[in-house]
Simulated scan of single mutants.
Amino acid sequence: MRIKKIYNNNVLLAENDKHVEKVVMGRGIAFKKRADEEVDTSKIEKTFILEKNEWSRTFEQLLNEIPAGYFEIADEIIRYAQSALGAQFSKYIYLTLTDHISFALRRHREHIDMRNALIWEIKKFYKDEFAAGVTALDIIKRRTGEQLPEDEAGFIALHFVNAQIEGQRMQQTMEMTGITNDILNIVKYYFHTELDENSLNYERFVTHLRFFNQRLFHREQIQSDGDDFLHEQVKKKYPDAYSCTNRIKAYFKRSFDFDISIDEQIYLTIHIHRVTDRRKRLESKT
């Protein structure tokens, strides 16, 4: 694999014997190197292909505008987060997170810290990602001496969420988080109760909502023949939960012109019953 272009001491563009271009990252991999020389493969830490032209342009712009050290900070954060979350991220997070860190630090130095309107929702729905975001702030402080506000841990957490859902944009991730919060509020207001956010049923419900929202954005439904018998059974057995599901159904129709299938209604009703039943039974004893 030969060097085509050197960006800085730690990042270069290389081409293999099949003429495939790859961005190669590694500490000191381009130090005292020149174009057309062989890449020292023993120093390669990250290799990825920028399939889209716009990503190639963005990458070069970032390298020209952002100190190389910020890529190293992002790399340390990504390594930690993937290990802590047991996840594999899209490689484009190296671009998006580096860009975010650079912009966040510049804004912070100019006393323009941005408020994260979804901070509490992120803490509730993406607890592990938020915890990794908090550690990311510690890494940034150790590397730069700058203490970014907690709101930034929320923004970074969304980068982790976004990177685990291939092809999904950050704006979509934030919209999905807002929709999840709306649904939970519908349930809370309908039953006039708070939900136990530490319960297993709550975690199951939120997990279901996350994937439900992904299907919404892709205009997909759970595919089956539609079990009318089970639908009627669930409707009769859990009338309150089913009535709440109808409110959620109306919310999606009104807000997104999206019709929830019978199968989706069954799943939602069961989850709503589970997440509210124990709370109702505890309240009835007081």
Rank of each mutant, 00 (worst) to 15 (best):
E232P: 15
I78N: 01
E283D: 09
L50R: 02
A81N: 05
P67A: 00
L216I: 12
Q214W: 07
A30I: 01
N16H: 11
S243A: 13
R278E: 13
Y190N: 01
I270D: 06
Q221L: 12
V234M: 08
N64Y: 07
F31P: 12
K33Q: 00
L184N: 02
H208Q: 11
I49G: 04
V275P: 06
E21P: 15
Y126V: 00
R204C: 03
D277W: 10
L63D: 12
S42D: 10
Y189F: 06
I3G: 00
W55G: 09
M170A: 04
F59P: 06
K236N: 09
E21M: 10
Q82D: 06
A84Q: 11
Q171C: 13
I260W: 04
G145M: 00
A74C: 09
A157R: 02
L97I: 02
D263L: 03
R2W: 08
S255W: 01
A104Q: 00
V234R: 12
R143I: 04
E197V: 03
G86S: 00
N181A: 13
R279Q: 12
V24D: 00
I222H: 09
V11S: 09
N64C: 07
A68F: 13
F160G: 11
G178T: 09
D151H: 05
Y92G: 12
E110Q: 15
K22A: 09
G167Y: 05
R274H: 07
T47W: 00
I3A: 02
T96S: 13
H192E: 12
V23M: 01
T41R: 03
F155T: 01
L85K: 04
A81L: 11
V20I: 11
G226N: 05
Y70A: 02
Q164L: 04
L13Q: 07
F256C: 00
I66H: 05
E129V: 08
D151S: 04
T135M: 10
L200P: 13
G167P: 11
F31W: 04
F125K: 12
D263C: 05
A30W: 01
D99M: 03
Q214C: 13
T173Q: 03
E38C: 08
I248C: 13
A81R: 02
E60P: 15
R142T: 14
Q233F: 04
K33C: 01
G86K: 02
N185K: 06
V234P: 15
L282I: 03
I112R: 14
L62R: 14
K280W: 08
Y242C: 08
I77N: 05
M1N: 13
S56E: 14
M170D: 05
A132P: 12
F103S: 15
L50T: 02
I49W: 13
Q265E: 14
S90Q: 03
G178Q: 14
H208C: 03
L200D: 13
T135E: 11
